[in-house]
Nucleic acid binder design. Sequence first.
DNA 1: CTGTTAGCGCGTTCAT
DNA 2: ATGAACGCGCTAACAG
Lengths: 340, 340
Amino acid sequence: MSKKTTIYDIAKELNITAATVSRALNNNPKISAKTKELVFETAKKMHYEQNKLALALKSGKSFNVGVIVPRIDSNFFSSVIRGIEEELYPEGYHVIICQTHDQQELEIKNINSLLNAQVDGVLMSVSNANIEKLDGFKSLLKKNVPLIFFDRKKNIKNVSTITIDDYKGAYDATKHLIDQGCKRIAHLSNNRKLEIFKNRYLGYKQAIIDSGLTFDENLVVESFSKVLEGRKQTKLFLEMDNRPDAIFSSSDFTALGAIQEITSYGLRIPEDISVVGFSNEPFTKFMELSITSVDQSPREMGRIAAQIFLEEVNNDAKVKSEKHVVLSPELKIRKSSQKF
Amino acid sequence: MSKKTTIYDIAKELNITAATVSRALNNNPKISAKTKELVFETAKKMHYEQNKLALALKSGKSFNVGVIVPRIDSNFFSSVIRGIEEELYPEGYHVIICQTHDQQELEIKNINSLLNAQVDGVLMSVSNANIEKLDGFKSLLKKNVPLIFFDRKKNIKNVSTITIDDYKGAYDATKHLIDQGCKRIAHLSNNRKLEIFKNRYLGYKQAIIDSGLTFDENLVVESFSKVLEGRKQTKLFLEMDNRPDAIFSSSDFTALGAIQEITSYGLRIPEDISVVGFSNEPFTKFMELSITSVDQSPREMGRIAAQIFLEEVNNDAKVKSEKHVVLSPELKIRKSSQKF
DNA sequence: CTGTTAGCGCGTTCAT
DNA sequence: ATGAACGCGCTAACAG
């Protein structure tokens, strides 16, 4: 292990003090141009690199931020992460990514673990499991570590959030189905204790009511965002006496499951049953039968989350204020719902 | 900022020394059971949590490892990462994920950045761009930070690797197409300066030769692993006078593009043209026309990469030895190539 | 069994 | 303009 060179090494080399070296490296105006140059030169020569750990210990800043998401293998979350990176990298931050796999236990573990790693902030989308309890966040808030929710949020005072207008996204999607002539629109929902799913449900419901159609609670079911779950629930819809003529899904994955099940029944899409998903995952565009879906501009969401973090961390902010950004979703109309 | 409590705080509380507290917390056998209990108790009472940064500075270990991948929004890489996490989390490590987006500049930046963060090791899959130069890795190797390549490797002495047998995967896939009666099999390759693509090419070629078919270099093209690239290259194949009756693609994404293009020409799959992809991305299974593909057991790959890292980091290893693990791929036969 | 001392690498007073 | 000394929080070596 070729010992890393420290400021002491280069100080010794130059017969000066480590303090002077430190100052020179940090461009302290009180250091003569000559010594500065000398220091920079020998620093390069000796392959000096600042030990961020020592700096972190000294300054209390690690320049690491934690990002907690349910999973990274969905285009939505990985795109958000990309947005976050784009914004934070140039500022010298690193991103530590944790997955909860929707398990509350892991979520809490992750938070504590990040806290121990002395992260400067946490950006997160709460897991499906962690709904009512706020315990997990107490430790964060108590230590005054900036916390920002994106997409799946909780309402906690002094905590900023960035979301999309799920209500509008769902409303527009449902309205679109109605405009295509659909009269009995089912809804594949998800855990409605999470705001995003509650709002998608409410937008869906309101669009139906506003259009003068009858709202039928039996056409709403909750399921996890998995392809097979979508199939299972859709099967139940298809076996109803009075089966729906459209399905608005709160997830692209369940929408895909719905399509598989509908097709396996020999029914046509969109003629017999139209389908709309949510998130605009890439595969929705690539299917032979492309899927109409609601785009959430995840990259933009990530960038904004990161910007909010930077504001919070830079404002020495005695007065902390919460900020709530809401992005507007965009309906991408494709074959699975376009009858004409 | 409610100051974090340190071992000094709890030492003062108990009228003992910080050192004793440290020892008690670390279960040093020389500490009396009574004081241990006392320390643990007040530690909990005062919400003490170890400052990993100080520990890292002291021990020279940050308990962070860097993982560098081209991108995280492919199931293959995100699954590898999951495997890595599963193995490393229980050992107290954190994972810092970096994406190169196949840009060499970013790759080098990431390495240096991770080095500055004092990571204990780097697990990476090299970018498509960084082919010949090894410069970027010098800094890593010089500092004696464990480096492990997975999937996309380079040959550097003392560096362990974990890959799949790409040659065999490609050979089996091509052999399968031949068994289905295909005679003119094209190959959508990728940058063959990367071993994985070179080996897939070689396996494909050998299977053709071994079967007594004629190998035609014109049926091999390189392209990036993107759907649209796949379409573009396939179009060229389709407009040949003597068009191929099968396509073996080195990527599921280009395979998908191929399918789209073939379909748009009104040709049938697999009857007119069969298609096989590589990586077993989830969508290959979910398409109405499911795609035959080669599974790379990414999660297993991640776990093994992590295990190798742990071995290296735990062996105080004067004698460093490289280890090369090769996993066996598995062909998943689906509709896109199954004629009977 | 426990206290004392020192050092990990850095930035920052307080002097000079 | 620079040096000396200290502290961030923790552990390890050396007492006793």
